[in-house]
Design a binder for these strands. Sequence first.
DNA 1: TGGGGCCTGTACCGATTGGTACAGTCACGA
DNA 2: TCGTGACTGTACCAATCGGTACAGGCCCCA
Lengths: 202, 202
Amino acid sequence: MVTTDDLPPGDGSAHDAHGDRRARLVDAAVDHVAAHGIADLSLRRLGAAIGVSHRMLIHYFGSKEQLLVEIVRTSERRQRDLLSRLRQEPGLSPADVARSLWQRLTDPGLAGQERLFFELCGHALRGRPEAVPVLDGLVTDWLEPLVDAETAAGADPVTARNRARLGLATVRGLLLDLLATGDRAGVDAAMEEFLRLYYGAQ
Amino acid sequence: MVTTDDLPPGDGSAHDAHGDRRARLVDAAVDHVAAHGIADLSLRRLGAAIGVSHRMLIHYFGSKEQLLVEIVRTSERRQRDLLSRLRQEPGLSPADVARSLWQRLTDPGLAGQERLFFELCGHALRGRPEAVPVLDGLVTDWLEPLVDAETAAGADPVTARNRARLGLATVRGLLLDLLATGDRAGVDAAMEEFLRLYYGAQ
DNA sequence: TGGGGCCTGTACCGATTGGTACAGTCACGA
DNA sequence: TCGTGACTGTACCAATCGGTACAGGCCCCA
């Protein structure tokens, strides 16, 4: 008997039960990857961790590569959600935006997600196809709201862009410092020093 | 016939031919890893790339894990050499130290080494044993000369440490930006903006 | 002219990988 | 009640992995 087994496992739309299960699987996969890393991920171990056989992962995603693509995409969407919550409060001063961004990013509950971010950067810089899309939005996606905040504060467009890029890089560098050293107090002090330089003495 | 095959392959001292060959192998391995990444390294492919059989890599290093340890150690030594050249010019102002550091780090010829640095950070943050030592010196090793430059410029110890930590993080963040976007002009402009904030208008 | 120790390549091993074949199960519509 | 089709577990496949056994090649000293 010939079936359509495994070839067209749905289009991924969210309105059918298939897409629901698929979405739940990829969510669980991102959680597992955020906790255990993506470098030496195997379908069998992932399946065992989230309660399905590796056969099911192939069934729903076609191949490991496509599953990795979806994992990266979902991880990016989580980061983007973090970002969108920033824009929804237009009354904030740039300093408040920066503090809010810093506080959200350094939430201990997000440490796994941030580690995954740096891990994906490493893979993307090597050209791993499923991680390369990370590089596209790495700077530009985050620059826009920061530039908006700077121009709203009165900076000219060129300076606003430079300052936004600088602020983003500093946050990322201090985040890497925090993940590597765990020295929360020292990193926070450096961040305060930055805010003093960036927005003037207060 | 019983031989001592593979069990004591020399102590790694550099004064014998064995150590020489070993050092040449690990140097070639670091070059290959800087160019092609360390994530999916296999002894067979590495051996084929540097002209030996994977059997030889096991012979000289005992196991893949020990070879990875040596690769990481050598890569760290190269970074340290970069750093030591900074200290040898004690007459530099902090701004000059920062510019010099930035120029050296962003040399296009070192892009592979810098990519390897971020890749190793990703692995180290996941607890991969051969990469974990990277985390130890990630901040502290680089902080010392920067703190020295700050105190020599008149900053009090606490502020000097915060400013040094901030400067290091900013350089790292902008370096990641540069590797991801390739936008040299944009990143350089952001760096200039940082130097303006950091050392005052000039 | 041997012969003992290193050096190195070939062939192999068990384990693990991504992916496939196949059959069994279950729900649902005729 | 039957059967069709989607879902899922088991068993398997070829490829690749790190690591080992073994033997031939080479050099050096007797």
